[in-house]
Amino acid sequence: MLLQMIERFLRDEDMTPTRFGRDCARDPRLVFDLRLGREPGDRVRRRVEHFMNTYRRSISR
Rank of each mutant, 00 (worst) to 15 (best):
R35H: 10
G37N: 07
T54Q: 11
R45F: 10
T16Y: 07
I59V: 12
V31G: 03
P17W: 08
R11Y: 11
R61N: 12
T18A: 12
V31E: 09
C24W: 01
D12C: 06
C24P: 00
R47Q: 15
R29E: 06
Q4T: 14
L3E: 12
R29Q: 05
G37Y: 05
L10D: 05
D14P: 00
M5A: 11
L3Y: 10
R45Q: 13
E49M: 15
R22L: 15
I6N: 04
V44K: 04
L36F: 02
R8Q: 13
D27C: 12
M15F: 02
D12A: 13
R56L: 14
R26C: 09
N53Q: 11
P40W: 04
R43N: 03
E7P: 00
R47G: 01
L3K: 14
A25M: 06
N53W: 13
R8H: 11
C24K: 04
A25G: 08
S58H: 14
P28S: 07
C24Y: 01
S60L: 15
R29N: 08
D33P: 00
R19G: 09
V48G: 01
M1L: 06
R57M: 03
R45K: 14
R11A: 14
P17K: 08
D12F: 15
F32T: 12
D23R: 08
R61T: 09
R61F: 03
L2H: 15
R35N: 08
A25E: 03
V44C: 08
R35F: 11
L36P: 00
R11M: 08
G37M: 05
V44F: 08
R46E: 14
E13D: 00
F20S: 03
M1E: 06
A25T: 03
D12W: 12
R57L: 04
R45W: 11
V48N: 04
D14E: 10
V48H: 03
F20L: 10
E39R: 14
M5L: 07
R56C: 13
L30D: 04
A25H: 09
F32N: 14
R22A: 10
R56Y: 06
E7R: 11
F9S: 07
P17E: 12
M15E: 04
R43F: 04
D12R: 13
R8T: 15
V31L: 07
G21P: 00
G21S: 01
E13C: 00
M5V: 09
Y55A: 08
S60P: 02
R61L: 05
R8W: 11
L34H: 04
D14S: 12
T16E: 13
E13L: 00
I59K: 08
F51S: 10
N53R: 15
E49A: 09
S58F: 05
P17N: 14
F32G: 14
D14Y: 07
F51N: 01
